[in-house]
Nucleic acid binder design. Structure first.
Lengths: 124, 124
DNA sequence: GGTTGACTTAGAGTGCGGTCTAAGTTCTAG
DNA sequence: CTAGAACTTAGACCGCACTCTAAGTCAACC
C-alpha cells in the first residue's frame, strides 16, 4: 500500500503501451517485483517500473516471445547467481536480432530495386 | 493444363514456405496470374511463380500485412498504368521498413548494453 | 455528498497468419 | 495392376499477443 507513483494511465502514456497491455504484462508475470497498490486496489507505478517496462518493450520490439521474456524476468528475479544464465539468454537472443536485421536489410534492398525500376519507368 | 514445372512440394523447397502456406497465398489472391494445373488438378509452379513468391516473402519479412500485399498484387495485375500507384505503395512501405530497422537497431543497442554489464559482472 | 470518470477483476473476444484435417483423387514405382 | 505417397478441396482449428467487456469499486471535483 503506497501512495507515491503514477496511475496506470500515466504509466501507459510514459511507456507507449495501453493500460490493457500493462495489466496483461503484469498478469503474465513480467513485472519483476509486482506493481505497488494505492488504497490496496489501484496500481502505482514508480520510475523503476517504467524503466523496466521500457526495457521489456525493447525485447518485444526485437520479437522476443512473451514466454522468453518471462524466462528472462524469472532469471532477473533470482538475482546475482543468475547473471551467467541471463547473459546466455541475451546473447542467444542477440543472434536472432542480428539475423532479423540482416533479413530485413536484404528485403529492403529487393524493395529498393523494385522502386528504382518503377522510377525509371515513370520518368521515361 | 500444363505438364511442365514443379510440384507444390518442390515449390515449397525452393521458397522455404510450406505447401500449406503456398496454397494459402494462392487462396488469398497473391499469386498474380494463377498457378497452372497439370491434369487439371495438381499445381505446377514455373520459375516466374517462384521468383514472385520469393518477392512476396521479402514483403512479408518486412512485416507488410497480407492485405497490403494483396493491394500491391492487384496493382501489378493492372499492368503498366499502375506503375505510379505501385511506386507510391512501395515508397510508403519503405518508410515503415526503415522505421522498423531503426527501432530494432535501437533496441539492439539497449540489449547490448545489458549484455556488456552482465559480462562485466561475470568477469569480476 | 453526489456524480462522473478512472480504476479493479476475471474472463471472453479479436485479428493475424498461418496450419491442419478429412475425404477424396491422382501420380509413381514395383 | 496395385499399393502407397503426394496431391486436391473446403473449412475448421491454432497460437500469439493483445484487446475488450461486464460488473463492480474508488477518487476527484463541484
Amino acid at each position: 500500500m503506497i501512495d507515491t507513483g503514477m496511475s496506470i494511465s500515466e504509466a501507459a502514456d510514459r511507456t507507449g503501451l495501453s493500460t490493457h497491455t500493462l495489466r496483461y504484462y503484469e498478469r503474465e508475470g513480467l513485472m519483476l517485483g509486482g506493481v505497488g497498490r494505492a488504497s490496496s486496489t489501484h496500481r502505482r507505478y514508480n520510475e523503476s517500473d517504467i524503466t523496466w517496462v521500457i526495457f521489456l518493450t525493447k525485447l518485444r520490439s526485437t520479437a522476443m516471445p512473451i514466454s522468453r521474456v518471462r524466462e528472462y524476468v524469472d532469471l532477473v528475479r533470482l538475482g546475482g547467481d543468475s547473471t551467467r544464465a541471463r547473459l546466455a539468454l541475451l546473447l542467444e537472443h542477440r543472434k536472432t536480432v542480428v539475423a532479423q536485421l540482416e533479413e530485413m536489410t536484404n528485403s529492403l534492398a529487393a524493395i529498393d530495386y523494385k522502386i528504382a525500376t518503377y522510377q525509371q519507368e515513370v520518368s521515361k
